[in-house]
Amino acid sequence: MNEKMLIRSMPWLVTIGLFVFWEALCVITGVETFILPRPSVVFASMVQFAPQILHHSLQTLMTTTAGFALGVVGGALLGIFIGASRLVYVGLYPVLVGFNSIPKVAIVPVLVIWFGIGTIPAIITAFVISFFPIVVNVATGLATIEPELRDVLRSLGASRTEILTKIGLPRAMPYLFASLKIAITLAFVGSVIAETVASNEGIGYLMLSASSSYNVPLVFAGLIVVAIMGVLMYAVAVWFERRMTGWAFRGSDLMS
């Protein structure tokens, strides 16, 4: 096997190896299924409950994507304001940091009071949790324009808007896409938390109801499905990143 093939197959090998290790561990220690089910049992459960898992994971995927989309739009806009204006920066940044320090699970009950149980709290939780890294990254991309470059444009007579559109925004793109990779995985955390606490639908709810009936293999099936969705969405973000900001990678073929 040559090196290129090895690099390509490495993620699969490690994943399979992890499951094999897990299976072996369970067999050797003889741990009870309702404490730690073997992967083979989990997969069997996945097949058995496939229709339910599909239904609930589609719900989770929908709420996550909706919350994430809101986070991207809102986060990018706020990031532009913060990065482009010193005044907005000093005013808003401490508030944002404070807000981000609040555990998101703590706001779900408030959302339930406002919007009731269901889809909306999940979307909002995914939104607030994915919002922050996007704001910070976009603002950083804008705020770190080289002073010489700014001077060159100012002495050409460029307006603030022109400096923003010609330099600021393209320059902030790699920062934005880097943050999307973090934000999409966080969005899953947000929606699953909200579904666990306050929903009748979604993977979070499925896992909660499975655990209350001691169907531990189904709980683990839910966890694995969330992980798979996270990896897939991450891959989508990477694909977009490569398409939009290929210039930032200088033609290297690692980084995927």
């Binding site: 010489e148 002495s155 007579g157 330099i167 900001t245 930032a248």
Partner: peptide
């Protein structure tokens, strides 16, 4: 800022994109 002056620095500041 004077408009339309040409400027070149030690750092070439070309836009990478």
């Amino acid at each position: 800022p004077v408009q339309g002056v040409g400027m070149a620095f030690q750092n070439s500041t070309l836009l990478p994109w």
